[in-house]
Computed example of a mutant assay.
Amino acid sequence: MNFRHRRTEDPEINLIPFIDVLLVILIFLMLTTTYSRYTELKVNLPVADAEKARDHPKEIVVAVSADGRYMVNRQAVAGRGVDELAQAMAIAAEGQGERMVIITADAAAAHQSVINVMDAARRAGLSQLTFATQSSRANGAEAR
């Protein structure tokens, strides 16, 4: 019988493969992560005051229909392009100083149509924009 005590080595945890796997997982997570950049559209909403009368001559109301047609102060715009719309807005703002542009867009209107109105206002030199919405409580009453 052999009663000699064999000397065994202490078990070791090999960290090299563990670090390799973690590095691969880290690279995978870095490559597949989407970085979202949240932007905010700063819109100055008008304050309603019941005592003051609205000054309609300083407003240009631009309506956008669901199919992309435009109306400036209840006058139909001949074309659907930004240039025609900018020209109609410039004519409506002629000689009145700084005017407020109120965009009333149909809920089914394309986003591009609303962006075209904003671009046309910029081209016409009109910097004050606001959007008109309908109040859900008043069933069609317009609130801005």
Rank of each mutant, 00 (worst) to 15 (best):
T133C: 11
V117F: 02
S113F: 02
T133V: 12
N14R: 07
A110I: 02
F18W: 08
A76H: 09
E142V: 09
V24C: 05
N44R: 08
V101D: 03
A53C: 10
V24F: 06
Y35W: 10
E94C: 04
A105F: 08
R54V: 15
G79T: 15
A121W: 00
A53G: 04
I13N: 13
N14D: 15
E142R: 08
I60T: 02
A121C: 03
L31E: 14
Q87R: 03
T8P: 00
E12F: 06
V43S: 06
P11H: 08
E94I: 02
V24G: 15
A86C: 06
R137F: 14
S127E: 05
V47L: 12
M71W: 02
L45T: 09
T39G: 10
F28E: 09
L31Q: 15
A109D: 00
G79P: 05
R122H: 09
E84T: 04
V117M: 03
A138I: 11
N116C: 03
N14V: 11
T32F: 10
R37M: 11
G81A: 13
M118L: 10
V64I: 11
M89P: 12
Q87C: 00
A132P: 11
A143C: 07
F28S: 14
G68W: 00
R144Y: 10
I102F: 01
R69Y: 06
Q112Y: 04
D49S: 06
